[in-house]
Design a protein around this nucleic acid. Structure first.
Lengths: 208, 208
DNA sequence: GTTTAAATTAAACAGTTGTTTAATTTTGTC
DNA sequence: GACAAAATTAAACAACTGTTTAATTTAAAC
């Protein structure tokens, strides 16, 4: 919760995020980090206490603000479908801008059983789920969305689709002929986002 | 491709899969493996050459047969929707039975740039995509499926949804009140599978 | 300018890592 | 039972791991 991070600490976190995302938490040594960040190894222990606590700081540093973003969205006066679409955009954009950390969150946190950070995550996920629930129930009350839906399974479809795509970046770049990073980013922002929105809409509104 | 693995080698792979899935590739030492598998450390190098080659053997050992399974499915005489549903079931079942290895595939293989194994995977994915393509185009030809769909994005939705769910097992167990492993497995086999099938069907058949 | 705290450093620490060695045991073949 | 190949072992290897130490430099406060 504390934000007392100086520039040097943030710089270290930046490097750590990049390396953790590239090579995994265990695959990255604090000497790797210190070398690229151009600092002494001891500085990491000095600032963060340990490698584990460094990860904890990193995650907290990168996830603050998400809850607020969701609350703003919910308060907006939008049609249910438009609201869901905006939620999807928000998720994709958020994850896309913080590729590194979200990847770490998925991969490392299932094995690492750091009690403190695990609780933090559960709370984050619960808040997310509550937001999605609110939006969908609003749509259901208005008679626009189906009612035979398991709401907690909506998020896996949104985030899971995006994640699987990101996870297989090289493959989809080849298959979809996305030659540059800009093309790839564009595809995410237009086609992939639309695909997910279309999917969720079809699922929610579909009437047989 | 070679199947000349004796019982002891397979036993080692079994243990390795379990540990890699639990603690990651880098998080698992060959001593961890040898201890649990009740063998000498040197046996791993003796049988597989190195830790990297052990992973390679493991992956190849666990993915043989997938391509054939898909070909059988395609040849079946089924309605397009039924075929897609069966494809989804096949994916989920396959991944569910090999949780460990699929998790490794996603997390480790993006960082490890083992040329040989990466090529193997690309080929596997291409074969998968081709199968999906065949089924969907069949449905399109019959006028049942929409034609404005980016087919390569179907797989991410199927597998991504499932994966994200698996990745957050503890969370969903709590949220959905799944108290035992049997309940959890049951939920996957019924509700989650149905959710994904419903999602894909809505996406493919939906007419606005 | 002196004093005090913070920042930074190189070196050392004790474990662990993947791998190799060389010796020994087990197994199969004749 | 003798021989050769395969399997198994304990020990050693050098490199790397996260962390701590104690000394030194820098910055801030007075």
């Amino acid at each position: 919760m504390e934000n007392n991070l100086n520039d040097k600490q943030i710089q270290i976190l930046e490097v750590a995020e990049k390396l953790f995302a590239e090579k995994g938490f265990d695959g990255t040594s604090i000497r790797d980090i210190s070398k690229i960040a151009n600092i002494n190894v001891a500085m990491i222990s000095y600032y963060f206490g340990s490698k584990d606590l460094l990860l904890e700081s990193l995650i907290k540093h990168k996830t603050i603000g998400l809850k607020e973003q969701l609350l703003v969205l919910i308060a907006e006066n939008l049609e249910p479908v438009a609201k869901i679409n905006k939620l999807i955009e928000l998720y994709i954009n958020r994850i896309n801008c913080n590729r590194g950390i979200y990847r770490i969150m998925h991969f490392e946190l299932t094995s690492k059983k750091n009690e403190s950070i695990l609780k933090y995550f559960t709370e984050l996920k619960k808040a997310n789920l509550k937001s999605v629930e609110l939006i969908i129930k609003e749509g259901q009350a208005k008679g626009i969305f189906r009612k035979d839906i398991i709401i907690p399974l909506i998020t896996p479809t949104i985030i899971g689709t995006f994640f699987h795509f990101q996870m297989n970046k090289d493959f989809y770049e080849e298959i979809l002929d996305l030659k540059t990073d800009t093309q790839y980013d564009n595809f995410i922002k237009t086609d992939l986002t639309k695909h997910i929105q279309q999917t969720i809409k079809a699922l929610l509104v579909y009437e047989n």
